[in-house]
Amino acid sequence: MAEMGLVDIHHSVVETEATNRGYERGLIELAERGTDIIVMDADLAGSSGTSGFRKRFPDRFLDIGLCEQDMIGTAAGLALAGKCVFVTTHGMLAAGKAWDIIRSTICYGSLNVNICGADAGLSAGGAGGSRQSLEDVAVMRTLPGMTVIVPTDAVEARKATVAAARTPGPVYIRFAAARVPIITTNITPFTIGQAGVYRQGDDASVLTNGVMLYEALKAARLLEDDGLGVRVINCHTIKPLDRAIVNRAAVETGALVTAEEGSTIGGLGGAVAEALAQSSRPTPIKIVGIEDRFGESGEHEQLLSHFGLKSRDIASAVREVLSRKRSLEGRDTEAARDRVQ
């Protein structure tokens, strides 16, 4: 897929970087281009990715202390007065602690506030379950008018940050503190709401985002050895979901796996299942993620294994949906035979 400008992860050394860093670069780029930007943080500039911005543009930076709720409320006021605002804190604090304020002030007023969840997913590692945010996507997705994005790598994180500044209404973007593989390049297309097909295949599709995209590409490669063609789709925008690409994957491949570094309830898997359950084509789906539980302490990589989020886990999920697809096809053929007789 040369036109996508992807890194050949199977044949080259894959570089890694925390997606927080891409956020930082995106913020600096916006300020350099003259955007009337205000970046806010709640005493986490050291880890969230805003400290570089603070150094370059101290006048455009506001550290509000451990006042996440006040930060979101103040951001609403800044947005009302015409500023392009980015607020930053840990994923579950951004999405969870101030949820009612995001709902009743930001979303109710459709305000242009960009809410950035740093250290999200399992990337807070050793800090464990209370700090890891596995529910942020689900709780943000349910809010009217909220755009929800999970970038796959630091390069895409930069693009998402810049694109969010130009998107009307509230946007939630989730970043990782841990180093994750870099898959995309500056020329890889990125448009909010448009998923990208990163690998072609007609037997099954994996819809994914964040660090799981890398695992999905590796899983597709594993399955190729078994003679299976697996389509891999980068669903960086969970809301609005790219229904056209999702439906096409359902129709053309007939078996879907979703994979995310978050709860299996209400995230990307939920979004895809909701869309397809109401389409004309019921399709076997398997949702890979973390099942109704908190995270725990450990290194990020160890945790991905511990929670069954590695390429081998995605590959076995693909085999499972394929067997369900075959039994459905079997039933279809039987039904057709019955009709003929």
Partner: peptide, 14 residues
């Protein structure tokens, strides 16, 4: 074992 995988001493008290 603090902060390590499967520890009883999680990063934040459990």
């Amino acid at each position: 074992t603090f902060r390590k995988i499967r520890t009883k001493l999680q990063g934040f008290p459990d």
